[in-house]
Design a protein around this nucleic acid. Structure first.
Length: 797
RNA sequence: UGGCCCGUAGUGUAACUGGCAACACGCUUGGCUCUGGACCAAGAGAUUCCAGGUUCGAACCCUGGCGGGCCAACCA
């Protein structure tokens, strides 16, 4: 039994939070929030976000708010909010204080908006929806200002106040931020902040004829609540720039008009959403299934909590436990790459949990009667059966009745069994679990159809409890129920809702609905011990799978059991695989691509080079330098090209070169190291200039410091500025070149790692890097790696 | 098509920030077993998307390409 908390490498968000706390940001306090819109039920895709938001708050003794993002009155409803609360609580999380609502902040949000207008950063636009869309431009073309963009502050204030007073029709005006209509990020092209909507809100009723957009309400709500880390999914990444804009252009003290800024200042971080094979995760599509299900009757989805649904309420009714969902989220992790997780992973998490907690019971789904000829008519024995197998290590047992007529699973008998069949067959003896060994003597058929009606068997009275005194081998153990005592019940066998791994890929996901996602077995039979159990009780039906008692009852009030997940069953799967193989025609040799051969990749045009060529055509000075770098300095064209894409970089290079280094080395440094630093910033923001870099290159070329040390020095110049010689001197970074001194270090490294030494000598020469790393680390990077490598090769021979 | 994000065994996530490509699921084989479950052991499976470059050394840094995703709602 492994501990419940597996050691898991922290994800990038936890690393970030840990760093923030360590750096003392917000006095080390962590406040997160989970912000669902109450317009549908939570599904398993949300569980990663829930586990992350609430989990991080727990780990840092911080808080996590539950905030309903209820800014769109036409789609939202109270019943969704309540269902969301129930699901989060069921998962085992508790939110900080009462649930929050964006609608609680409507008044504040409104006042902040007025302030924004007064600051000249927002305006009322009276254009039509279509005009606004057109004015925004496209992803390739900038937008164009509409006629109201320069509307005066007073006029905008007045219009906005009248919007709030309800004087205008829906769509007559909107409030927009004045940012940048030419911004490459479409979200920054004067986003809408408020729209007029004469609709009753489920919480605020008719109090508001205008409603804030997500773009306005969300960052402000975070700021108002003092959220430190605002975590959301990847599709909001373009929103971050706007999120920051809103937070930076508003301030807590509205009336006073004092400058001030939000503290804590919330930061948005995005992670990839969770997708699971054979499921759909879009609330719209799930709502569609619920709506259509109501219309289509019996076979249709019965509601948000239909056990075929990926909703938390559906999974709950299916018998999935909150612990398994949380464990599943741990297994999946948090990262930034889009993911589609194997449904088998969820099933594993479910089995792993249920194996420990679900008591074993016996239930026969498709009964076949056996009559035990030598067992007295009318006799009943109550045989003890443990609730758990020994390996689970839990106590508890019940008694199950045994009689002359027993029901077994139809699939557990085979007249002409395959070689490795470990169940009942004519003349064979098997064990009825916890009862007796029985032998099949005769097959009784329906006279008309030839179908097997029942089996005649005999039992060995000496095997009571299931073990033979003589220790003879048995061909298998099967489950059973006494025909005279068993309880009729209904079993609902669930399977994946869709037949393809990614149903959302195609235009109409309905085509891939799995008609076999629910198979109802109305006439199953179960041992009587379960009669008094309540709905929600988990079981493992021996050899079948995990089941949970449903709240429904079947025909005549019989209990209903939902199959949560089947047991792993290599035998059935290998049978199915064999069948599939038999049906599929043998592969034609040479029909498909030969293994190991890869389709050649088409290499496209170098657009970066083309762009820089364009710049050089327009700036003769750069073009001149490009040509002289190639012809006079002997640089490769590729380097010369990168150095002459803009004047500042070329100038930096020239200044560095003037310090006397070789053109090739200086170019390498500029291209490989400087360009990285220039990614998020301009060359003017650098804390050092070309001459400093040139001197650094000089130190390397003179052999004063190693290339590796030079990178450390460079790092320091980036962070704090400074002169390379000075840094080297003050920190004692001079390179160790002395072979004798290095030889000692090499000896020590070899002696300290006998395992690796042996493996190296066996041919794992890739370990050389490991040894070099050891020596480099021991010297703080000061050893000359070339010398280290040479000596190591000699020593390890 | 412009901008941004992302490419590591079949799947998901790591790799001490440039030094032995690891863990989990799945798969195969064996052991054990009164569940063809669980458990235990072993194994297969990777051109770290591709091509150049920097470096003693690249999954990691630079350049380019390829592929996937997101963004032009008065939705969130």
């Amino acid at each position: 039994m492994s501990a419940r908390k597996p050691e898991r490498a922290p994800d990038f968000i936890r690393e970030m939070v840990a760093a923030d706390v360590a750096a003392g940001k917000n006095e080390g306090f962590v406040a997160t929030r989970f912000p669902p819109e109450p317009n549908g039920f939570l599904h398993i895709g949300h569980s990663t976000a829930i586990c992350l938001d609430f989990g991080i708050a727990e780990e840092y003794a911080g808080t996590c708010n539950l905030r309903f993002d209820d800014t769109n009155p036409t789609t939202e409803d109270e019943r969704y909010a309540r269902a969301i609360e129930e699901d989060i609580g069921w998962l085992g999380f508790r939110w900080n204080g009462p649930p929050r609502y964006a609608s609680d902040y409507f008044e504040q949000l409104y006042r902040h908006a007025l302030q924004l207008i007064r600051d000249g950063k927002a305006y009322v636009d009276s254009s039509s929806e279509e005009e606004i869309r057109e004015g925004r431009g496209t992803v390739t073309e900038p937008g164009t200002p509409g006629p109201h963009r320069e509307r005066g502050i007073e006029e905008s204030v007045e219009l906005f106040e009248r919007m709030r007073a309800g004087e205008f029709e829906d769509g007559a005006h909107v409030l927009r931020a004045r940012i940048d209509l030419a911004a490459p990020n479409m979200k920054m092209r004067d986003p809408l902040l408020y729209r007029i909507r004469h609709a009753a809100h489920w919480r605020t009723g008719d109090a508001w004829p205008i409603y804030p957009m997500y773009e306005w309400a969300h960052p402000l709500s975070d700021a108002i609540e003092g959220i430190t880390h605002s975590l959301c999914t990847l599709e909001f990444l373009p929103n971050r720039e706007l999120y920051d804009w809103v937070v930076d252009n508003t301030r807590p003290g509205i009336e006073a008009g004092e400058p001030g800024s939000w503290s804590p200042r919330p930061r948005q971080t995005e992670f990839a959403r969770l997708n699971v094979d054979y499921m759909v995760m879009s609330k719209r599509k799930l709502a569609e299934l619920v709506r259509e299900g109501r219309a289509s009757g019996e076979q249709g989805i019965h509601g948000w909590d239909d056990p075929r649904m990926p909703t938390l309420s559906g999974l709950r009714r299916r018998g999935v436990t909150p612990e398994s969902i949380r464990h599943f989220c741990d297994l999946v992790g948090i990262a930034k790459a889009d993911k589609r997780v194997d449904i088998g992973k969820l099933e594993h998490a479910v089995r792993d949990d249920l194996n420990r907690r679900a008591a074993r019971r016996m239930c026969v789904l498709r009964p076949l009667e056996i009559e035990i000829e030598n067992y007295p008519e009318g006799k009943t024995e109550w045989l003890p059966a443990p609730d758990f197998p020994v390996d689970v290590g839990r106590r508890g047992s019940r008694e199950i009745p045994f009689s002359r007529r027993i029901l077994i699973e139809r699939g557990d008998f085979e007249e002409d069994p395959p070689a490795d069949f470990r169940r009942l067959a004519p003349g064979r003896e098997v064990r009825l679990k916890y009862a007796y060994l029985v032998t099949c003597r005769e097959v009784v058929r329906e006279p008309e159809t030839g179908r097997i009606r029942r089996l005649r068997c005999t039992y060995d009275p000496a095997t009571r409890g299931g073990s033979a005194p003589d220790g003879r081998p048995v061909s298998g153990t099967i489950h059973w129920v006494s025909a005279d005592h068993g309880l009729p019940c209904e079993a609902r066998l669930y399977d994946r809702l869709f037949t393809v791994p990614n149903p959302e890929e195609d235009a109409d996901f309905h085509e891939h609905l799995n008609p076999g996602a629910l198979v109802v077995v109305p006439d199953a039979c179960i041992e009587p011990s379960v009669a008094g159990d309540g709905s929600g009780t988990h079981y493992q039906f021996e050899r079948l799978g995990y089941f949970v008692r449903d709240r429904d009852t079947g025909e005549g009030g019989r209990p209903v059991f939902n199959r949560t997940v089947e047991l792993k069953d290599p035998w059935t799967r290998s049978q199915l695989r064999a069948e599939a193989r038999a049906e599929e025609p043998a592969e034609v040799p040479g029909g498909s691509a030969p293994p190991g051969e890869r389709a050649p990749q088409v290499v496209g045009e170098d657009t970066g080079r083309r762009d820089r060529d364009g710049i050089r055509r327009r700036v003769p000075e750069l073009d001149e330098r490009f040509r002289s770098y190639v012809s006079e300095l002997g640089l490769p064209e590729e380097d010369a090209d990168l150095l002459t894409g803009d004047l500042a970089v070329a100038g930096f290079f020239d200044a560095a070169l003037a310090e006397g280094g070789s053109p090739r080395a200086v170019a390498n440094w500029v291209v490989n190291e400087l360009l990285r630093e220039l990614k998020g910033r301009s060359i003017d923001d650098l804390r050092f200039g070309g001459p400093e870099l040139g001197r650094l290159v000089g130190l390397v070329e003179e052999g004063d410091i190693s290339g590796r040390m030079a990178k450390d020095v460079f790092r320091r110049m980036v962070d704090k500025g400074g002169d390379p010689e000075e840094i080297v001197r003050s920190r004692g970074l001079e390179q160790i070149n002395d072979p004798e001194e290095i030889g000692d270090l090499v000896d020590r490294a070899v002696e300290a790692h006998p395992d690796q030494t042996a493996r190296y000598r066996e041919g794992q020469t890739g370990l050389l890097g490991f040894f070099v790393g050891q020596v480099m680390r021991a010297t703080g990077g000061k050893a000359n790696p070339e010398v280290v490598g040479r000596l190591l090769r000699e020593r390890l021979k």
